[in-house]
């Protein structure tokens, strides 16, 4: 199993997979303190960028620019898609397989167009 070491408030996780490019290096060692990545071992510059900036600029739930409770944002999304005659679902390339499966299920349900970065 992955060694997760706790030392002076720093959690070290080994064998971490880098979610940046499709090289998918899986030997990173990530040091985390106060829910921030403070050190990335084995990673390239791009990997460091992903992990060291991961705690910054988190998105917030919003509708029309206003912050709303999470469920309201989800409800509004459902309303928009249910009312659409020709929806587009796009993306998928920077998330995991479970989310991709759900995108396809949703596209199937609402008769959407579905595309990923392969076509760009």
């Amino acid at each position: 199993m992955t060694a997760v070491k706790q030392d002076e408030g720093i959690t070290v996780t080994e064998h971490v997979v880098c979610p940046f490019c499709a090289t998918l290096c899986d030997d990173l060692v990530i040091h985390v303190q106060n829910n921030q990545v403070v050190k990335v071992r084995n990673g390239c510059n791009l990997a460091r960028g992903v992990f060291e900036n991961a705690h910054k600029e988190w998105a917030t739930p919003r509708v029309n620019g206003k912050e709303v409770p999470y469920d309201s944002a989800v409800e509004e999304a459902a309303r928009i898609l249910a009312a659409s005659n020709n929806p587009l679902i796009y993306g998928l390339a920077a998330t995991d397989v479970d989310a991709q499966k759900k995108c396809i299920e949703l596209a199937d349900l609402i008769g959407a167009n579905l595309d990923n970065a392969s076509s760009v």
Binding site: C21, A93, K101, I104, D108, L114, A117
Partner: peptide, 26 residues
Amino acid sequence: RGHYNVVGSGNTMCWQTGYPFAVNFG
């Protein structure tokens, strides 16, 4: 390939729809 899971998106779409991208369910 570029994005870290663009290959996954092609695979998942392929086993559920038969096609790796540019699908329409209309």
